[in-house]
Design a protein around this nucleic acid. Sequence first.
DNA 1: GGTAAATAGTTAGGCAGCTAACCATAAACA
DNA 2: TGTTTATGGTTAGCTGCCTAACTATTTACC
Lengths: 181, 181
Amino acid sequence: MPNLLLKDLPRYECLLEAAKEFPDLEPSACETFLHLLRGGDESVRVMESNLARHNITQGRFSVLMILLNRCRSNSGTLGPAELADAAGVSRATMTGLIDTLERDGLVTRAPDTVDRRMMLVRLTDKGRALLEEILPEHFKRMSWLMSPLSEFERQTLVQLLNKLHQQASKFPAESPSAAAV
Amino acid sequence: MPNLLLKDLPRYECLLEAAKEFPDLEPSACETFLHLLRGGDESVRVMESNLARHNITQGRFSVLMILLNRCRSNSGTLGPAELADAAGVSRATMTGLIDTLERDGLVTRAPDTVDRRMMLVRLTDKGRALLEEILPEHFKRMSWLMSPLSEFERQTLVQLLNKLHQQASKFPAESPSAAAV
DNA sequence: GGTAAATAGTTAGGCAGCTAACCATAAACA
DNA sequence: TGTTTATGGTTAGCTGCCTAACTATTTACC
């Protein structure tokens, strides 16, 4: 799901110019933000073009990967609510994702006999086989994408992104302008 | 449009473990990639919660910003194809975006008398007023989000993201596995 | 034990992204 | 000049994302 992507980011001088009109615009913050968006988006596109060859999308892929990981530790089943939480989407979205995955035979959905509100989603053999077919190229592309960065640069990038993650997680879910404080 | 987001990224030891099963998995590349995705996604969410208060989405916002920028230099009008290219979406998507923007009175659409295939999209006064209402808080949030990073760290981050951008732009649009070469 | 609150899952309606196909017009070229 | 090709815009149909509202079940609490 590539997001909207500005092809040419504004040059720094333009940001400086715009800052005269909008005193709240901090050019270096804006520049960093736009680069981050573009970087994330382009990376997703590179990976998605691989997934698309197997008729699968980023969203479906994430669900399959979560199930695969949980297989190792737990019983191999998860409820839609847990999946939604792990994947960072709404429960309604997860219902739709599971619908298409089930339709294509990649997961199964069965009612939980203990808690009768719950459904148990499980990766099928077909789903696992699909992942094993996709993953080698998937990981190759990751390596290719990151190949211009040295190990040190990768660590640096992760640290910087972690700082942003820390900050974003502080964001008050509701209060709108309180963020500016 | 927040993309799908893994809430808890796998720990590095898990990546090392998984690399035993998938020899193509390069743990540091994978870790960097996942952090990048999460960082971009979280940042978008912070900004979008502001736009949503004004009943606008990231996609619509981008179109308005492109028009605002072009106003300064050009005649203030752009065709859907140019907009789509600048925003990095398909022409069909842009048609839909302009539809809703026009419905809400934020842009106008008029046929070009010279090239009769073209439409000319123009920002309305209402659209401009909306931007002027949104932008201060928009820029405040950018600054808030980036506030944990020093100027030097921002420069570093931009440089690293630029390297990824260079690499991603090298990506062959069609050939699937040639990327691994 | 019985009512209220919380939780799991789904459904409905809307927007945004995509591809593929289509029509109108313009440009290229024989 | 006339045909072919390219371009601009739209439409149709799909997926995926959201919120809000709904049902069923479980839990909490009086």
